[in-house]
Amino acid sequence: MAKHYPALTDRLIEFISEQKIFFVGTATADSRVNISPKGLDSLRILDNNRLLWLNLTGSGNESSAHVQNHPRMTIMFCAFEGPPMILRLFGTARVIHKDDEEWQKLFGYFKPLPGARQIFDLSINLVLTSCGMAVPNYAYTGDRDMLSDWAEKKGDDGLKLYWEEKNKFSIDDIPTNILTK
């Protein structure tokens, strides 16, 4: 049965720390809903109602465009091993770009990852667990290095050119402001 919490509990924080993948959902009032799988060492829990997610360069930049227009964000975790559970974190997010004043301080929570482009700061206002009994079991065999290798080969200048070409607007033509400063 689903349970609602106003904040993360120690047990839920432990569950999150054991997960290798999470899903981010965002949308504006009239855009397409975007759900994106995320991995690597890109999530930090600052306290029971706040977390940071280091967003890496990808083929799109929907979350950034959405959050700057409508700051809702949901992050979902699923147990693919062990006891079943689905955990959703609902909240209000802010986008921090590399040129923003807060970037250096918040980036310090992460080990540097090639292709880092934004940090999302999520204020959690609802935590919801549900059973997850229909989620299949999967075995984690390791992270993929392909994105990091690609970003390292591009270098800073190559990434900025890529952002200019692929990451300036969402698929609904909403600006991401990745190159405004």
Rank of each mutant, 00 (worst) to 15 (best):
P83E: 15
P83L: 13
P84F: 11
M85T: 00
M85H: 05
I86S: 11
I86A: 07
I86Y: 07
R88I: 02
R88Q: 13
F90S: 11
F90T: 07
F90G: 04
F90V: 08
F90K: 12
F90H: 15
G91Y: 06
G91N: 11
G91Q: 09
A93Y: 01
A93L: 02
A93G: 07
R94Q: 14
R94D: 03
R94H: 00
V95R: 00
V95D: 05
V95L: 05
V95I: 15
V95W: 01
I96D: 07
H97M: 02
K98N: 08
K98V: 00
D99K: 12
D99W: 12
D99C: 12
D99R: 11
D100C: 00
D100L: 02
E101M: 11
E101W: 04
E102V: 05
E102Q: 14
E102H: 00
E102T: 00
E102N: 05
W103M: 00
Q104K: 15
Q104R: 13
K105Y: 10
L106M: 04
L106F: 08
G108Y: 02
G108V: 02
G108L: 00
G108W: 05
K111S: 11
P112H: 08
P112I: 03
P112Y: 08
L113I: 13
L113K: 10
L113Q: 14
P114F: 04
P114S: 12
P114T: 02
P114Q: 07
G115T: 03
G115I: 09
G115E: 05
G115Q: 01
A116E: 09
A116M: 00
R117A: 02
Q118S: 12
Q118W: 07
F120H: 13
F120T: 06
D121I: 06
D121S: 10
L122S: 06
L122R: 01
S123C: 10
I124D: 04
I124C: 07
N125I: 03
N125R: 06
L126N: 15
L126R: 15
L126T: 11
V127E: 05
L128E: 13
L128D: 10
T129D: 02
T129P: 07
T129Q: 06
G132V: 03
G132T: 03
G132E: 09
M133P: 08
M133K: 15
M133E: 13
M133N: 14
M133W: 12
A134V: 14
V135P: 00
P136Y: 02
N137K: 15
N137H: 12
A139M: 11
A139G: 11
A139D: 13
Y140A: 02
T141N: 13
G142E: 03
D143E: 15
D143K: 08
R144Y: 12
D145R: 09
D145E: 14
D145T: 10
M146V: 11
M146L: 12
M146H: 10
L147S: 14
L147F: 14
S148L: 09
S148K: 09
S148D: 14
D149F: 04
D149S: 11
D149Y: 06
D149P: 08
W150E: 01
W150K: 01
K153R: 11
G155A: 07
G155L: 02
D157M: 01
G158R: 02
L159I: 12
K160L: 15
K160G: 02
L161W: 03
Y162W: 15
Y162V: 07
Y162A: 03
Y162C: 04
